[in-house]
C-alpha cells in the first residue's frame, strides 16, 4: 500500500508515455484490480449463462449432480418438433408486434403532444402515464385481473349495467380473448417508459433548427417530417431495440395473471421454459431440454433482430 503511494507520488509530476507490455500492465495494476468485481459478477451472471445454456442443451439433465447424460441434438430436435414451443414463440412474437406497432407509435404521438411547452399540465400527464411503470408487474397485473373478473369484476359490471353486453365477458378465462387482454395490460404497463424514451429523443432536436424551419414557412407536418424525425431517427432505433427486447421477455405478467393459460392460450417462451425447469408440480426438472428451448429462442430472436437491420439502415440513410 505505502509503496504504491510512494511510487505514484514520485512519478506523478513527470508526464508519462504510454508503454506497452508489462510496464503498461503494472502502471494500470490498480485499474485491473478495480475491474475484478465487474468481471466476476458480470461474467458469472451474464456471459457465463449465455455460454452454459448451450452446453447444458446437449444433456438430458434433471439438475442433480453435473450434466453427464450426453444426448447430442435430441433436445433441439424435440424443441423444434414441439407445437407447444412454436405456439409459445408465436405469442412472444405477438407481444413484440403489439409493442412495436401499437405502443411505439402511440407513445411517439403522445410524446410529440406532451413535448409542446404550451400544453398546460403536461408534467402531470407525463407523471400519470408513467405511474404503471413503477408498479410491480405481478402485483398490478393481479389487481387488473380482479377488475376484469367475470363474476362481479368492475369492468363487467359496468358493461352489463350500461347494456353493452348481456353476458359477462371472461377476459382472462377465454382462449380467444385472454391473449388480447394481456397484450392490452402489457401496453398499459410499458407505455410510460416508451413515452419517456421518445420525450428524451425529442429533447435532442435543436430549438433553433425548428425555429429556422418555422421561419422558412414550414408548418407542423413539414417540420415534423423534415426536421424532427430525421434528428430523432438514430435514437429511435435504440428505442425500437429496447422495446423489442423487453416485449420478447414478457414473463411476470403472464406467469402472475394466467400462468400461460387457459389451455396454453397465453403461453410465452419464458413461461414455457419456466415450466420445464422450475414448475413445482413437475416430477423431475428438465434443465437440458429447457436450456435447448432457451437457446433456440435466443437464436430465433437474433434472426428477427437481424431481419430488422436492413430496414433500419435504410431509415438511417434517408
Amino acid at each position: 500500500m505505502t509503496t504504491t503511494i510512494e511510487r505514484v507520488v514520485r512519478k506523478a509530476p513527470v508526464p508519462e508515455r504510454p508503454r506497452r507490455g508489462r510496464g503498461a500492465f503494472r502502471r494500470h495494476l490498480w485499474s485491473y484490480v478495480f475491474l475484478i468485481p465487474l468481471v466476476l459478477l458480470f461474467g458469472g451472471f451474464t456471459v457465463w449463462p449465455m455460454i452454459a445454456s448451450w452446453w447444458y442443451a446437449f444433456f438430458d439433465w434433471d439438475g442433480v449432480g453435473s450434466p453427464a447424460d450426453w444426448v447430442g441434438l435430441a433436445n433441439f430436435r424435440e424443441v423444434l418438433a414441439s407445437d407447444a414451443f412454436w405456439r409459445a414463440f408465436w405469442h412472444s412474437f405477438v407481444f413484440s408486434l403489439a409493442a412495436i406497432f401499437v405502443e411505439l407509435p402511440l407513445a411517439l404521438v403522445l410524446a410529440i403532444l406532451l413535448n409542446n411547452s404550451w400544453l398546460r399540465f403536461r408534467n402531470l400527464y407525463r407523471l400519470v402515464l408513467f405511474l404503471p411503470v413503477v408498479a410491480t408487474t405481478a402485483v398490478i397485473g393481479i389487481v387488473i385481473a380482479i377488475l376484469l373478473d367475470p363474476a362481479g369484476g368492475l369492468v363487467n359490471r359496468i358493461l352489463l349495467d350500461s347494456g353493452l353486453i348481456d353476458q359477462p365477458v371472461n377476459f382472462l378465462g377465454s382462449t380467444s380473448i385472454a391473449l388480447p387482454t394481456l397484450l392490452s395490460i402489457d401496453v398499459w404497463k410499458g407505455f410510460g417508459i416508451t413515452l419517456i424514451y421518445w420525450l428524451a429523443a425529442l429533447q435532442t432536436v435543436p430549438k433553433d433548427l425548428q425555429e429556422a424551419a418555422a421561419i422558412d414557412g414550414a408548418g407542423f407536418w413539414r417540420s415534423l417530417r423534415f426536421v424532427t424525425l430525421p434528428v430523432v431517427m438514430p435514437i429511435a432505433i435504440v428505442i425500437l431495440l429496447l422495446v423489442f427486447q423487453r416485449s420478447l421477455n414478457t414473463f411476470d405478467l403472464v406467469r402472475a395473471v394466467t400462468e400461460g393459460g387457459p389451455d396454453y392460450a397465453t403461453d410465452v417462451v419464458p413461461t414455457y421454459i419456466y415450466r420445464y425447469a422450475f414448475d413445482p408440480s413437475l416430477q423431475a426438472p428438465r434443465y437440458g431440454f429447457a436450456s435447448a428451448a432457451g437457446v433456440v429462442f435466443g437464436l430465433l430472436t437474433l434472426v428477427v433482430t437481424l431481419l430488422q437491420a436492413p430496414f433500419m439502415r435504410r431509415r438511417v440513410g434517408s
Partner: peptide, 19 residues
C-alpha cells in the same frame, strides 16, 4: 458490455440458478 445489451440472451436463468 454494450453488445450483451442487444444480443438476445435466450433464457439464462438455468445456468444462473445452477451457479
Amino acid at each position: 458490455l454494450v453488445a450483451t445489451m442487444f444480443i438476445p440472451h435466450g433464457y439464462t436463468i438455468i445456468p444462473t440458478f445452477v451457479l
